[in-house]
Design a protein around this nucleic acid. Structure first.
Length: 362
DNA sequence: TCTGGGGTCCTAGGACCC
DNA sequence: TCTGGGGTCCTAGGACCC
């Protein structure tokens, strides 16, 4: 067996952080999401296993969650608390002598080489629990795809291994959306092509996939289904590509003065975030979601990279003016596309783009 | 299931140029 | 003039993930 990878995935991370600071919630159905008010628009970010038993999980609208589990405790999202907890977790993981890739608040990969993977996984679980009070599941794989899927099988608080030896028996009969990178839409498109299992996808005709999914995604899907993934575990933090904020309104907006005010406010927030991180925008994109949930975007190129509030507001208003304003608006967003750092000039950003793993970061 | 917010990357079509 | 074949850039939208 070659070198192995661990995928460390915290169990019900957001809910676990809330329970950790409010121990009286332990064992109760808790749903965290939005403003924490289940009469308002929003969805559940994470629910405890006790709430999941009632059909309340990630993505469940808050109103639906309340209907399914009226006695659930609803809490608002507290991003700073999760960022803080995540930093604690990652600093513990960084103590191990392995390459660490942070893949999100509650997820990380460790390239452990050829040490005993079960022992490594147990060591990670024990140390994380002891030092942070949080439990995690650990997947072991020959690549990141396998480790990630194995971590799902390991939940909660377990250890699971998926490698080339047991890939076929474990995955062949699973639906394609069991794979990391195939969601509802791609699964439906595959079903239309008569592909309903992982093994069928692995054995499918590549040209068919290319014409259905495009020149990069088609071949990539086929390789996924075979359990192949050559992306590396990388400790390098990647430079951000964009920074944005968006807001769904409890009541749809109808007045253009209101739209203007909100877009200006959002643009200010984005500008402040850019300044705080010494980043500059090269393009500002405004997003509008209309009442029947159709979404449009319009972008404006800046004459020169900037993070000045007035410039971003002006560009955002120019973009806003390019929408047909004929329907009620339920969401507004402003996003800055980040200009390349001139201090990195000489490195050709375009040539560094990877096409071997669409939809995933390296 | 009346459907958040923060991101990343890919795709396709049109503009433009040689 | 009724009309090719690239290549690249830009834009809007789509899909996915946590």
């Amino acid at each position: 067996m070659g070198p192995l990878i661990l995928c460390v995935d915290l169990d019900q991370f957001i809910a676990a952080v809330e329970v950790r600071r409010r121990p009286e919630l332990a064992g109760l159905p808790v749903a965290v999401g939005g403003s924490g008010d289940p009469s308002r628009r929003g969805v559940v970010a994470t629910a405890t296993y006790e709430a999941r038993a009632f059909g309340v999980g990630s993505g469940t609208p808050l109103r639906t969650a309340r209907r399914r589990c009226p006695h659930a405790i609803f809490l608002p999202l507290d991003r700073p608390a999760y960022e803080q907890a995540s930093a604690e977790v990652m600093s513990v993981l960084a103590e191990f002598p392995w390459i660490l890739e942070v893949a999100g608040w509650d997820e990380a990969f460790l390239a452990i080489g050829c040490v005993d993977p079960e022992a490594a996984a147990r060591a990670v679980q024990d140390r994380l629990l002891r030092r942070t009070g949080l439990s995690c599941s650990v997947g072991i794989g020959a690549n990141k795809l396998q480790a990630k899927l194995a971590s799902g099988f390991a939940k909660p608080a377990g250890i699971s291994r998926l490698d080339h030896a047991n890939w076929a028996e474990t995955m062949n009969d699973a639906p394609p959306d069991a794979l990391w990178g195939i969601g509802r839409k791609r699964a439906r498109r595959l079903a239309e092509l008569g592909i309903g299992t992982v093994v069928a996808l692995a054995e499918s005709d590549e040209e068919t996939l290319v014409s259905a999914f495009g020149p990069a995604t088609g071949p990539w899907l086929k390789r996924l289904a075979g359990g192949h993934d050559d992306s590396r575990v990388s400790a390098e933090s990647r430079s951000p590509r964009s920074r944005g904020v968006e807001k769904t309104f409890d009541q749809d907006l109808e007045e253009s003065a209101e739209l203007h005010d909100h877009v200006r406010g959002l643009a200010r927030t984005v500008a402040e975030a850019l300044v705080a991180n010494d980043l500059r925008a090269q393009r500002i994109v405004v997003k509008v979601r209309y009442a029947p949930f159709t979404t449009q975007t319009r972008g404006v190129q800046l004459v020169a990279p900037s993070n000045a509030v007035e410039e971003l507001q002006s560009a955002a208003l120019t973009a806003l003016a390019r929408f047909d304003r004929d329907r009620p608006v339920r969401l507004l967003g402003v996003r800055a596309e980040i200009a390349p750092d001139p201090r990195l000039a000489g490195q050709d950003e375009k040539s560094k783009r990877r096409v071997d793993r669409p939809g995933a970061s390296h």
